[in-house]
Amino acid sequence: MLLFYINYIVPLSVLIPLVTALINFKYLSKPFKIIFWFVLLSGVINLICIILLEVLHKQNIIIYHIDNIFEFVVLSAFYYCFQNNTGRKAISWILVIFIILYIVELYFKGLSVNNTYTHSLSAVIIIAYCIQLTFKQSEKDDKINWGDDGINWINTGILIYFSSGLFMFMSANYFLTASQFMIRLIWTIHDTILFLQYVLFAIGFYKCKTHPTISTY
């Protein structure tokens, strides 16, 4: 049952935000479109991982490395949309430094283990982006409810996923030697948070019509 949940239900739940986004596609502004492509490509990567592991019985850790970099770059692009000039420059520099650090860690640790330091670092940076946007949104002189702004839902989804998953990213290498039960338990928790993120994204896409893109640029 747990395997079915991890292997089928959660990966397929990616369709919830994707369908919602496609229905409202003409209303999606740039940040929403970035999240749409993020969800779509995450879904594809997830699918490739499942095929490699379950069908071809091969290691999928290389795909995880690609996913980690892709995830950080796309989410940085999302938060880039809400920054002023200084913020945009800072994000560009963060991206360059992150990619260099990732390659350095990869060089020292090899391809067969998780890049726990840089992956955890990326999660911490994304949490910082989320908190900054939360404060920015609360200072906005808008006349709409928190729930009516789609960006708030998407930001919340990202914040919950990365902050809850941070401990898992940090200890990812320990799980390589853990018992099957523990691995499944941890993945079930992770997938539940991922599912919650997708649901929050879907609500965000649904509410996108009421959202005028804010930018201090």
């Binding site: 409810n145 928190w146 914040l159 919950i160 809850s164 401990f167 898992m168 320990y174 799980f175 928790i189």
Partner: peptide
């Protein structure tokens, strides 16, 4: 360590959810 990780994840989840709810309440 696995139990500690699960506890850490749950605690962070609760903390973040509370932060968001507080922020929503404040903003509204």
């Amino acid at each position: 360590i696995y139990i500690l990780v699960i506890l850490g994840m749950s605690g962070t989840f609760l903390l973040v959810t509370s932060f968001i709810l507080f922020s929503i309440r404040n903003q509204n």
